[in-house]
Design a binder for these strands. Structure first.
Lengths: 208, 208
DNA sequence: CGCAAAAGTAAACGTTGATTACAAATGGAT
DNA sequence: ATCCATTTGTAATCAACGTTTACTTTTGCG
């Protein structure tokens, strides 16, 4: 017995979902602080107080939007590296790592406001739900594990994974600052991934 | 003839400076979005509209606050590395690099809201004035140049400097995320700086 | 069918950013 | 010293916002 409508369908249909969608789209286009519950309610044809049946706060809605952002980022990751098929060579594994980094930076560039929300005070760390804990770190770890499998790097641990994450994340955050803006984005992220790999290779040989 | 009072001293004394000070202090303590021009004016004993004689916008004030943030960061840098005296050895130069990274991360940890403002939409990139263009990048470059002098690394260029910056910046931004939160901050930043140096060393030898 | 819970409404409160017309203080030129 | 344009602050006002309250409608289950 397939449910053709979600069960929370009273007056509006599914206001909670509609609000999240609306706010996510708004966060993709404009600044987060310009989003107002009143305007959202107005555009959705609903009274100003209706949103408070589904969200305790404006912050709660923003939290949900941040979670959607992480979902979207994960989708981009899947599209970028396609982990279903196994990498056939070390070069291919390195290419996957670069593709992941490129997806990370591209997402930040394409959705700057959503990005800021995700890593801002209403994102990751806020709220009760673990839904916003990003899998970002795990994805990079997967890539590094693969590189280890091909002996591109010898060791993968928490510090290794975290270093890779921070380096890519920092690039995503500072891509607009000089002198980054003068070089093509693709070149920038490729160089960054290469330097990360070199750091990990060097860490291997010095630890051994 | 030393001026005992600044020349912009009419009713209040120097409202512009007082506003920046007040807002900077507020940004250090609470979230930036909780700062209101009205409350600031109230606490400064001035009417709500007075601030608009000195700032076109609330955004303009926030821009000025972000600039103060960069000033404060630069002060921390100076206190951390004291470039007046020359480094006597490669080890000392490396220690300076680590001290700079630690100062960077510590500043972000001590002033999370001001930090977000500085690198947010009202910071670096916003506004007309070049006052907020950070010298952060230049500071790291100075350290790297010093390391080059001691042949810890052979080459320093824009890409080198930018990589170092992004890696430290990413750490500062993600220091609260797992698994970073489980390790002591000092250890974290030292390890990060070491990995950055290893990347640069490796880049040297592979380029040569 | 009836009824309790869920979902939305309408009105209000306090606060905010911003603009306007006006008044007061200031300091340089005469 | 006095005039006067400029700067600075005031008072009032506007529209918009987040949030709460009491109330009404809709829903789905027993």
């Amino acid at each position: 017995m397939a449910r053709v409508k979600p069960k929370n369908a009273h007056h509006h249909g599914d206001l909670k979902e509609a609000l999240i969608r609306y706010a996510t789209e708004a966060a993709r286009q404009g600044a987060v602080e310009d989003l107002s519950l009143r305007k959202a309610s107005r555009d959705l044809g609903v009274s100003p107080g209706a949103a408070y049946r589904h969200f305790k706060d404006k912050a709660a809605l923003l939290h949900a939007v941040a979670a959607r952002g992480f979902d979207a980022l994960a989708d981009d990751f899947e599209a970028a590296v396609a982990f279903d098929s196994e990498a056939a060579s070390a070069a291919e594994a390195e290419a996957r790592f670069a593709a992941l980094g490129a997806a990370y930076v591209s997402f930040a560039a394409a959705n700057p406001n959503l990005w800021r929300l995700m890593f801002g005070p209403h994102g990751m760390t806020a709220g009760p739900g673990p839904a916003t804990r990003p899998s970002t770190y795990a994805w990079l770890g997967k890539c590094l594990d693969e590189l280890k499998g091909f002996r591109v790097i010898a060791n993968v641990n928490d510090r290794t994974r975290f270093f890779a994450w921070t380096a890519i994340h920092g690039l995503a955050d500072l891509r607009h600052a000089p002198p980054a803006c003068e070089v093509q984005e693709r070149m920038l992220v490729l160089g960054q991934c290469e330097l990360v790999l070199q750091a990990l290779r060097a860490a291997d040989s010095s630890a051994q």
